[in-house]
Nucleic acid binder design. Structure first.
Lengths: 228, 228
DNA sequence: CGTCAGTTTGATCGTTGTCAATCAAAGTGG
DNA sequence: CCACTTTGATTGACAACGATCAAACTGACG
C-alpha cells in the first residue's frame, strides 16, 4: 500500500488535485508550510540555500512521494521544493493530515517507510559527494535517476529516458559547478558511455556506465565487510 | 516518549542489556542484522565502506537512538556500526521487535520520528560536505557534536566536552584526509577558536566558532527564501 | 624499552573552481 | 516575421584547495 492509496481511501473533501507550472515552488525554505502534497506526476527538486548564495539539491522526487510534511508543525522548512517540470499534485491541509495520521496507524508506518528510504538515499548522496570524483559522481547520480524512472538497471545499449535537468541542476546535486559538469559530460560522451541532451539521457554503454557509477557489477554479494 | 521508554514498558524477556568494548562493531556492512539495539550509553559511528577502501562516516549516534533496524528484514546492512567508546546497549531480536511495532502504533510513530530527524541530519551533512570548505566543514561537525552532547549552543568561552574522535574519524565524516584535518585544526587553534586534544573539545571562542561553522548568528529569522 | 596508533609538518601534484568569452536555442515584443 | 533578450552549454586560461607521499614526532601501553 502507498501513502497515496491510504489517503485516497479516505478521500477527504479538503484534499485538492492541482497542476503546478514548471519552475514554481511548492514551498520555500524559511517559510512554514501549512499543506502537504502527494506528487502524482512530474519532477520536483528539494534544495537548500546557504547564506552565501550557494545551493544544494538534496533529492529529486518521483511520483508517489509525500512532500512538505515536516515532523514539527509551524516550524520553517529547511529546504524548498521546486518543480522541474509541470507537476500534478494532491494537496492536504496540514491540520487535516495530522488528524489522519493520528487515527490511521498504517499511515504512520508508511510515513516511516518513506522517511527511512529517504534517509538511505541521503546517505547514498553523502557517500557520492564525499568520496567519489566528478566523473563517478555524475554517473552515479544519472544511474540513480535512471533506476528511479525505469525501476531497473540499464541493460541494453542506447536505452533512453526523459530527464528534465539542466547541467547546473546536476552540479548542485553532486557538489560541482555547472562548468565542470559540462566538461565531465563531454568526457563521458566521448568515451561512448552516456549522452545527455535536450532533456534526454541515453545510456550508450550500460556496463561501462554502471562501472563508472561505482557499482561493482562483476559478481553480486561479494562485499567484504572488513574493518573500517 | 522515547523509543527506549516505549520498549521498556513492554520489558520483553528476550531483551538483553550488554556492554560492548571500544572498537567493536554492533553490526557490519554486508551482513544481515538479526537484532536491533537501543543505545544507552557511549558513542557509536555509522559508516559505509566503498570497494576502493575509502570510508564515509554517515553519522554519530547519541544515547537513545535505535540502531540496526533496517526496514526490510533479511537484507544486508548498507553500513557498519562501530563503537568509539565502551558502549551500553539493550538488544532486541529483530523478530520480536517486528511484532512489537505491529502491535504498538505509538512505536511506529516514534520510528518515523527518529527516521525523520536522521534524514534531516543526513541532509545537513550533505550540505556541509558539498558546499563548505575544510575549515567550515570541521567547525560545523564539531558544533553539531557539541550540541548533541550539551543540547544547546556554546555560550561562555572555554566550555569543554568529551569527544572521543580521532582526526581520521573527523576526516571520514566530513570528506577530508586526516592530514588535512590536522592542518585545519591547527589553524582553528592558532586563531583561538577551538582546541581539540586528548578526547576533549574546548570551545575557546563561541562566537567565532559558530560563525566558522556557517551559522549566521547576527539576527535570527532573517533567512531570505529567494529563488534557487 | 620498544611498539603502535595517532598527530604533525613539508614538498609536490592534481582536480576542480573561478573568470571570461562565445555560442545555440528558445522565448518575447515590436 | 524579425530584432532582442534570456537561459543554458561550451571552451580556455589560470588559481587554489586539498590529496598524496614521506618523515619525524608524541604519548600510551605492554
Amino acid at each position: 500500500m502507498t501513502i497515496r492509496g491510504e489517503l485516497a481511501e479516505i478521500s477527504h473533501p479538503e484534499s485538492v488535485t492541482r497542476f503546478i507550472p514548471t519552475g514554481a515552488e511548492l514551498y520555500s525554505q524559511g517559510e512554514v508550510c501549512h499543506r502537504c502534497f502527494v506528487l502524482l506526476d512530474g519532477w520536483v527538486a528539494l534544495s537548500t540555500l546557504l547564506d552565501d548564495g550557494s545551493c544544494q539539491i538534496l533529492d529529486f522526487t518521483a511520483p508517489g512521494a509525500l512532500l512538505g510534511f515536516q515532523l514539527a508543525p509551524n516550524v520553517p522548512m529547511y529546504h524548498s521544493a521546486r518543480c522541474l517540470t509541470a507537476v500534478r499534485i494532491c494537496a492536504y491541509p496540514r491540520s487535516v493530515f495530522d488528524k489522519l495520521v493520528e487515527r490511521n496507524s498504517r499511515l504512520a508506518f508508511l510515513l516511516f517507510r518513506q522517511a527511512s528510504s529517504d534517509e538511505a538515499r541521503a546517505h547514498d548522496h553523502l557517500v557520492n559527494v564525499s568520496l567519489r570524483a566528478a566523473r563517478e559522481r555524475i554517473a552515479h547520480l544519472l544511474l540513480e535517476l535512471y533506476v528511479k524512472v525505469r525501476h531497473q538497471l540499464p541493460i541494453r545499449p542506447h536505452e533512453t529516458i526523459l530527464l528534465p535537468l539542466t547541467q547546473t541542476d546536476i552540479g548542485q546535486a553532486v557538489g560541482l559547478t555547472g562548468v565542470h559538469v559540462s566538461r565531465t559530460l563531454r568526457v563521458l560522451r566521448e568515451q561512448g558511455i552516456v549522452r545527455l541532451a535536450n532533456h534526454m539521457l541515453e545510456i550508450v554503454d550500460p556496463i561501462a556506465f554502471t562501472r563508472a557509477a561505482g557499482l561493482e557489477t562483476d559478481a553480486p554479494g561479494n562485499r567484504t565487510a572488513g574493518t573500517c
